[in-house]
Each structure stands twice: as C-alpha cells, then as structure tokens.
C-alpha cells in the first residue's frame, strides 16, 4: 500500500519534471525556430546579393535591386537622435524620482505620469505625431526655409524620444535606487552637498547601469515600427537631410510586406527582418549583461 503510494508520487514527480523540462525545450526550440525561419526565408536574398544587400543604396522592387543602406541609415539616425533628445530628459526625471522625491506626493505624481505614458500604445503616439507634431515641424521648416515636408527623420526621432523617455527613466530610477546608502551617507558626512553626492557618488556609481539603460532604450528604438511608419515619410532613397523623409528597416517591412509579389522581394524583406533581429538581440543581451553585473556589484 505504502509502496504503491510512493510509486504514484514518484511517477507524478517524474512527469511533472518532464513537463517543466519540455516547456524549457519548447522555448529553446522556439528561438531556434525563429532564427532558422528567418535564415531560411532570406537565403535567396543572401545568396543573390551577399554583402551588397547592406552596402547597396538602391531599393527598387521593379528592377529587382535590393540594397538596404538607406533604411540602415534611417534606422540609426532616428534611433540615435531620439536617444540624444531623450537621454537628458529621462536623466532629469530619474534624479527627480530617485534622489529628490523618493516618497510622497511628488513621487507618486511623477511616477504615475511616467507609467501612464509608458502604457500608451505606439500606434497612438504615431497618430498623435501625424496630426500634431507634423504640422508643427512643417511650420518650423517654413520658418527656416527648409523644404516643408513635416514628416521625416527628425519628426520620427521626436516621437521615438517621447516614447523612450518613460522606459529609460524607469530603468534609471531602479538603477540609482540600488546605489548603497552607506556610500551616499559617507559622502554627506564628509560635508558634501546633495549636488555633489548626486554627481560624484550616485551617478558615477550607477554609470554602468545607466549605460545599460541607454543601450536597452536604443534596442527598443531600433525595432519600433508603427509610430515611425506614420511620420517618417517612407521614402526609399538615401536620406538627403535629417529634416527630409526617410525610412527605417522596421517600417520598410510594415509597408511593403503585403506587396511583396515575387520570391526575391519577400526574401529581401525577410533578410531585413533577420538583420533587425540580430542587431536588437545583441544589443539586448549586452544591456542585460551590464545590468546584471551592476546589480550583483551592489550586493
């Protein structure tokens, strides 16, 4: 009787562990499947163009020429400008929440605002950008005598920056919350002012964590699709200036995937997806490794 009971629980344990392991195997297979699928579908484009796919600046489905340099540049430009705009702003919000107001009403309000903004779907930011930001940018372009597109790389960088701020600020205040109190208190007891503590202790201590936050925000900006698609102008030529229209890799896929009539066209779009996947995966893992090192360093 007892033996039988023990046997039952034993087989229960076995099958439970098997189920857990199979869920782990499932996720590994899924990721492997993702890589294999992207590679398989882009193999035609890979073998046809080789490296020219990246260095070529002509994307012309009619003549069957596919080079993604314009989109590569568009993606990098929008993301980097967005980072440059959003970094100081998110750092300010980080210091506000993480240093000056760690509790109380201002903290609740600012945190609430940040979380609220983080929750707004990207499509709505794009919609807002199209109807509000584009006319404003156009006004400025008329004022400064630039071709008044309204849409373009700069406009989408602003929308991206707005979307990134809540994300990088929330990483920021989690990171500076991990700075050991003893260090700050030691600096205070030496007579440092709060500004000096923030500058010389908090920020310099959490430097690597903040860098990781920037990296993760960059990864997010690279892959962002919908908001950018709506305001970038979708021009497949090399961008002439940052105030003119351009295109990114993600929005190229969004715009042309359903139109891809022949195999090579589809394959070229899959290769774009493959490159986007690899770049964001590398940036993400790098960012997570830095964060992990930072967190284990604070313990």
């Amino acid at each position: 009787m007892i033996n039988k009971l023990a046997m039952n629980s034993f087989s229960g344990d076995q099958s439970f562990k098997f189920i857990l392991l199979s869920s782990a195997a499932f996720i590994l297979m899924l990721v492997a499947g993702i890589v294999i699928t992207l590679y398989y579908y882009s193999s035609l484009s890979l073998s046809t163009f080789g490296l020219e796919f990246i260095t070529g600046s002509t994307w012309d489905p009619v003549s069957g020429e596919y080079g993604i340099l314009p989109f590569l540049i568009g993606t990098l430009l929008t993301s980097i400008i967005a980072l440059v705009i959003s970094f100081p702003l998110s750092l300010i919000i980080t210091i506000f929440i993480g240093e000056y107001f760690t509790t109380g009403m201002p903290n609740t309000l600012m945190r609430g605002a940040v979380e609220l903004l983080a929750g707004i779907p990207s499509i709505i930011y794009g919609f807002w950008g199209l109807f509000v930001l584009v006319p404003i940018v156009r006004e400025f372009q008329i004022l400064f005598d630039i071709a008044p597109y309204g849409v373009g790389i700069f406009t989408s960088a602003i929308v991206l920056a707005i979307m990134i701020i809540p994300y990088s600020a929330s990483i920021g205040y989690e990171v500076i919350g991990l700075v050991p109190k003893e260090l700050k208190e030691a600096a205070y007891s030496l007579g440092a002012t709060r500004y000096e503590v923030i500058k010389n202790v908090t920020l310099s201590y959490s430097g690597s964590g903040i860098t990781a936050g920037v990296l993760l925000s960059f990864g997010r900006a690279l892959g962002e699709t919908m908001a950018v698609t709506m305001v970038i102008g979708n021009s497949n030529l090399l961008p002439g200036s940052i105030f003119g229209p351009g295109n990114t890799m993600a929005s190229l896929i969004a715009n042309e995937f359903t139109e891809a009539a022949n195999e090579l066209y589809l394959s070229a779009l899959f290769e774009t997806g493959l490159i986007l996947f690899i770049v964001t995966a590398v940036i993400n893992i790098l960012g997570k490794i830095i964060i992990k090192k930072f967190v284990s360093g604070t313990k």
Partner: peptide, 16 residues
C-alpha cells in the same frame, strides 16, 4: 532565450 524573445521587434514577430 527568454531575454532574446523579449527583445524581438514586434514587426519581426509578424513576419515570422
């Protein structure tokens, strides 16, 4: 693998 999955751009999930 979970980390990589979390970072996949949503448009890539669409084409997959």
């Amino acid at each position: 693998a979970v980390e990589v999955m979390q970072g996949i751009p949503s448009i890539v999930v669409g084409i997959l």
